[in-house]
Design a protein around this nucleic acid. Structure first.
Lengths: 177, 177
DNA sequence: GTCTATATTTGGATAGAC
DNA sequence: GTCTATCCAAATATAGAC
């Protein structure tokens, strides 16, 4: 799975042939089929595993006792840094998500984000800090900049810590009343 | 080119085989090679053409005399609506951009957006409305929600006009001091 | 300019030995 | 559980007639 993810991240989904994956993993082509029913199954499994790992990392060390605005900023940055620490995972995820395979995945992987956004939103509305906007709209406003800033990093742009804080402030500003 | 874009938008890049493109276009497979050197050339040409058409549409009817905050909101919505009016073009663009082919394209297509963001930013900083953040950071905060909200629409979510206005307000809030 | 027919390569997947 | 060898289908691209 890691071999497949590396190839997709580096050279695109079309480059992830069974031959290439087997070579990258250091096994024979036929061996792949002892572990996965098909190449598609392998890629889907790799995607799910990657999402789980990234969001487990991001979820660690988050203090739920903070006031919602501060909590939002820290959560946003934690997810950003979790992806940045593993850019290959991010690149793989982006490419996978734009492929036809994503339809077969069932969006189970995005569930962790949705739950986190729901919690934040509820707390912030209760405290009177956040606008009462639909959960999926807030979720989009939250995740979208993460994705765009990371894509910029893949192309070589390095965001400073101050710039990331400014971005987190902007995301927060979009949520608050 | 339109046939190819339709197939990619509907069934993904992998489904856009020469056989499928020729069938969708109503010509024979060999005929494609009288107009393009390769399948990749055909797809790249389709991508460039699509970007040009969408941004010509979005640029029409924008009043540059407005105060920067209001101008930002209207511009944001105009680009959003231009893409929404042609969702196939958007879906094709997303998928193409995540493929290895995008590296061969040269990113000339995104130039129009960058110029528009630069103008807005300059005006808003001069008027004291906007934060003095890097142009590419503001550009990401501007474009990212467009992309995410449109992706949601591709999956069936229909944003109301009020929700889109709220999104534009949030984008603006991220820019203002 | 477009078609039909075909060459050539490559990809996903399986069989069976070890 | 892994390897080697192989099958079969599909994909890109070309040749040559009309």
């Amino acid at each position: 799975m890691q071999a497949a993810a590396r190839i997709v991240a580096r050279d695109g989904l079309a480059a992830a042939t069974t031959a290439a994956i087997a070579a990258e993993a250091g096994v024979a082509e036929g061996t792949l089929y002892r572990h996965f029913e098909s190449k598609d199954d392998l890629l889907i499994a790799a995607y799910r595993q990657m999402k789980q790992v990234v969001f487990l990392n991001a979820g660690e060390g988050l203090d739920t006792g903070l006031a919602p605005p501060e909590r939002l900023k820290r959560t946003w940055k934690a997810i950003y840094l979790a992806y940045r620490a593993n850019k290959d995972a991010f690149a793989f995820g982006q490419r996978f998500a734009e492929s036809a395979l994503a339809e077969r995945e069932g969006s189970e992987a995005g569930r962790a984000v949705a739950r986190m956004v729901t919690d934040l939103r509820r707390a912030g509305i209760a405290s009177g800090d956040f606008k009462n906007l639909p959960q999926d709209l807030l979720g989009s406003l939250f995740m979208a900049p993460i994705s765009y800033l990371l894509k910029a990093e893949l192309k070589g742009r390095k965001w400073t810590d101050a710039e990331l804080d400014a971005a987190a402030d902007s995301v927060l500003a979009g949520w608050v009343k």
